[in-house]
């Protein structure tokens, strides 16, 4: 049983942050959203977003061997049971395995592909989900375990989804072992921008450290820029919402939301949301279910800008 505060935080994000965005996106593409993601055994996504969802592919982690398998199978059983008992089994399928492996390999551990991943008769598989909810308990990448699969999977996802608009909800643990990779990346982006203001902000982010408990700011800054970059290469306009930081069950998590809209270009696309706007975005936090602007922000961050963003999302804040 999760502590009340973490449940409240997660619930607040799902209902007050994600849900209006999902509703708006569903209206914009004029259809229920076909879902791909990690709903978890309690399928709270389905309960809270159900009226906006169409076909659902749910992923639950199952490894083929090891002591954890029994616990994993119980979670799968609980997930399937809840889906059926709570009336979500119409237009539903379960795929078992690690989400990133399923994206990279095209199939789960049982050899089954996600329904909306078209692979037959084509050298270029294509995915046509409208909503991806990648709700990881783990971090962006673990360098000690070789290549950072989640980063690879994100790149592959955007490539697979080419020419198909979608919403990406990404939740990551702030922990990672990518070492100085994030700082290098932020510095590199800074070197490519002409704005001294933005260079200062990016430098500030790149210097955040675990020692002063601000490590998560590097992830906060990196992920939107990285997603945006991959999106452009794959001809998407990428809109990034302000990242949200919260405490879960013994973990610190960051929640990102992106809208990717195909531009149909041959060369890389560009977004209406400018680089500077992404760099200057404030960090939002959730405490006991309430949204606030983080008290600690990058230099030059104007509180009013942050409040404006929250107001646009219909969220009251201090």
């Amino acid at each position: 049983m999760l502590p009340l505060a973490s449940t409240q935080n997660k619930e607040a994000i799902r209902r007050r942050w994600d849900k209006p965005i999902i509703a708006k996106f569903s209206r914009s593409i004029k259809k229920p959203l076909d879902y791909f993601g990690l709903p978890g055994p309690d399928i709270r996504d389905f309960h809270d977003w159900g009226k906006y969802l169409g076909f659902k592919t749910g992923i639950e982690v199952v490894t083929k061997r090891g002591k954890v398998v029994e616990e994993q199978l119980r979670k799968v059983n609980a997930l399937e049971t809840n889906v059926i008992l709570d009336g979500f089994s119409e237009n539903w399928q379960l795929r078992r395995g690690f989400l990133e492996n399923i994206i990279l390999d095209g199939v789960d551990i049982d050899g089954n592909a996600p329904a909306l991943l078209a692979t037959e008769g084509t050298k270029n598989p294509r995915m046509t989900y409208d909503l991806h909810n990648w709700d990881f308990q783990g971090g962006l990448g673990y360098k000690s375990k070789g290549e950072a699969k989640r980063i690879q999977a994100l790149k592959r996802l955007i490539e697979l989804q080419r020419a198909h608009p979608f919403l990406l909800l990404l939740t990551l643990n702030v922990r990672h072992t990518l070492g100085t990779e994030l700082s290098r990346y932020l510095t590199g982006i800074g070197n490519e921008t002409y704005s001294r203001k933005h260079q200062r902000i990016l430098k500030w982010y790149s210097e955040r450290k675990a020692i002063d408990s601000t490590e998560h700011y590097r992830t906060k800054a990196t992920v939107p820029l990285f997603i945006r970059q991959i999106a452009h290469i794959n001809s998407f306009d990428c809109y990034c919402y302000p990242p949200v930081y919260y405490e879960g069950w013994k973990e610190h998590l960051l929640h990102f939301v992106f809208t990717l809209t195909p531009q149909g270009t041959t060369l890389p696309a560009f977004s209406k949301q400018q680089l500077g706007q992404v760099v200057e975005m404030p960090l939002v936090e959730v405490h006991s279910g309430k949204f606030v602007l983080a008290s600690f922000q990058h230099p030059g961050c104007r509180k009013q800008d942050g409040l404006d963003v929250l107001r646009q999302l219909g969220i009251q804040s201090k």
């Binding site: 399937e80 059926i84 089994s89 399928q93 379960l94 795929r95 078992r96 049982d110 089954n112």
Partner: peptide, 12 residues
């Protein structure tokens, strides 16, 4: 309800 999904069958 008899449901076939993935590699599983459910009887509810």
């Amino acid at each position: 309800e008899i449901q076939v999904t993935g590699n599983s069958v459910f009887i509810l």
